[in-house]
Amino acid sequence: MSARPIPWGFVILIGFGLVAPVLGIYPTFLMKCWCFALFACAFNLLLGYTGLLSFGHAAFLSAAAYTTGHAIKVWGLAPELGLLAGTVCAGVLGFVFGSLAIRRSGIYFAMITLALAQMLYFVWGQMSFTGGEDGLQGVPRGVLFGMLDLSDNTNLYYLVFAIFLAGFLLIYRVIHSPFGQVLQAIRENEPRAISLGYDVDRYKLLVFVLSAALSGLAGATKTVVFQLASLTDAHWHMSGEVVLMTLLGGLGTVFGPVVGAFVIIGLQNGLADKVGSWVQVIMGIIFVVCVLAFRRGIIGELGRFLRRPL
């Protein structure tokens, strides 16, 4: 069992999630953090555990955000169905993009995903239902399963946290399953995984779809929280941000992306009114510092200090 993270990590995570709104932290900020934490965890499944650097994950975030927004606002679907529609849509898109991208590896993989996501960005910009530059605004929050009124911030907070936790546990389960072991084998040595008889492309595609769908779930949830889906979600800056969150928190660690997401979103929120648009420069500097001197990330270093994988 030594390969498993200590249960304390889970205790802290769940405990924090449950009491955080009581501590007086702004709930919308927390919900944003959980959405991005899920997004980063889904991304980490791909980069941290399979070694595939996708530079186009904004595509899945935005596809789900627009689908969910449209489904709830225009079709009048219940929020649970809207979230489902967004997730499925991102998964299908993940299948299409993934099938193309896995035909090349390494740096080409990153460039292809980036290019495909940029294509989608242009498509969203031209389609009418997305509202172009203004975005899809005024998405009603609705009533979950016909009982739980989501216009109440506390209800919504615990729904968002539950969604995050479900996604997080699923990812945890996947990482520690035989499937996850094969993924890590591909990360460590792809030719050897092939020679052992694994159909590497199928594994890559499957994990890509899973990562895309979970990123979609994060984007769909974000739409319900902010009642808005906009082009910002599809921009390549967003794809870069999720890379940064994962890198800062710790590549290939279970808890790293969560910490990374909280730090980055916290920094952006805290700095926005102090330094204005210098935030982008600061993000760039964090990127450079992480790559040059801090490649294990926060949780990676902590895990090394505690001598346990976290």
Binding site: L53, V243, V281, M283, G284, I285, F287, C290, V291
Partner: peptide, 9 residues
Amino acid sequence: LLTFGIALI
């Protein structure tokens, strides 16, 4: 990743 960070800066 490094050059991406530099581009942002």
